[in-house]
Design a protein around this nucleic acid. Structure first.
Length: 285
DNA sequence: AACAAGACCTGCATGC
DNA sequence: TGCATGCAGGTCTTGT
């Protein structure tokens, strides 16, 4: 499901439910996700009060007011967080397939992590280890942060012969883009996904940085994209998918030019690094 | 070092 | 209907 805007949407949905609340009970309903749960995972969380829920790239990180180890989470491809409460007529929602972790708070709410494909993970990490943790240390700048500038992007891409599309999916270059927003950002910047990454310099780099920031900010404002199964913790759908210019629109006319699908124009789908890329060959160079 | 391909896992849509 | 195939929002590992 999730790229940066979806993860940020999940964070915004979970923060009011978790921050300031004490975790009463944690249930890990299986031994592992993408990685095994740490020893005594539940016990190491129970009784502690969440201070802040933050995001780094596509990771969520819960910090506690005791300053102790933090909960690090990744939603993988199909992970979602579902919030419910005991207050309703039916009480707790009954567990369904792929409900892997249930967290109960002292506010009477429950957060369930559901992940069919199990590419997601939950683990514990000491606050001091955050920058050097193997899962986090290689991550590039936050695309919406001050560190993501055209000169910085240009430097990260310098000399790279891989396609710019593949480079944008490399979390060391910039952290948080996935397949959808890489495609959408390149469209908005007018850059061909097949262009060698090292040739994105100067005005092109400036356009790409601006496009990435705009696309991500607009997607967050729209509550992310709801394809297939992604919903917000509240159950609401995001709606940015209605604004896709190219993603999933093979054969459709591109919104930026007059290329005619009936005459072989329009949005094209190719495969790069094993992933679908959607783009307009006329508008993107 | 950088890159491409394969692996991980399940569900769904499509076509025969 | 059943079965095979290909595809899906990610990232880690392997091999060149």
């Amino acid at each position: 499901m999730p790229e940066l805007p979806e993860v940020e949407t999940v964070r915004l949905g979970l923060a009011p439910v978790l921050e300031g609340r004490r975790i009463l009970r944690v249930e890990a309903r299986r031994g592992d996700l993408r990685v095994p749960f740490p020893e005594r995972f539940a016990e190491r969380l129970e009784g502690r009060r969440v201070q802040r829920l933050t995001r780094r790239a596509k990771y969520l990180l819960a910090g506690f007011d005791d300053g102790g180890e933090m909960l690090l989470m990744h939603l993988g491809m199909s992970g979602r967080m579902v919030v419910d409460g005991a207050g309703g007529i039916g009480g707790w929602r009954a567990p369904v397939a792929h409900d892997h972790v249930v967290i109960e708070t002292d506010a009477g709410t429950r957060i369930t992590f559901n992940d069919a494909r199990r590419f997601g993970l939950m683990t514990l990490i000491a606050p001091g280890d955050v920058p050097a943790h193997p899962l986090l240390r290689g991550l590039g700048p936050e695309p919406l942060g001050d560190g993501f500038t055209a000169p910085a992007l240009e430097a990260a891409l310098a000399g790279r012969s891989a396609s710019i599309k593949a480079a944008l999916l490399d979390q060391r270059i910039v952290a948080g883009l996935g397949n959808i927003y890489a495609c959408e950002s390149l469209f908005r910047a007018g850059l061909s996904p097949r262009r060698r990454a090292g040739t994105v310099r100067g005005a092109r780099a400036r356009r790409l940085v601006a496009a990435i920031r705009e696309v991500l900010a607009e997607a967050i404002a729209a509550g992310g994209s709801s394809l297939r199964d992604h919903v917000r913790p509240s159950g609401e759908l995001g709606y940015f998918q209605h604004r896709f210019a190219v993603y999933g629109r093979e054969g459709a006319g591109c919104p930026g030019c007059r290329c005619d699908p009936a005459r072989g124009g329009g949005v094209r789908r190719i495969v790069q690094a094993g992933r679908s890329t959607f783009y307009c060959p006329v508008r993107q160079r």
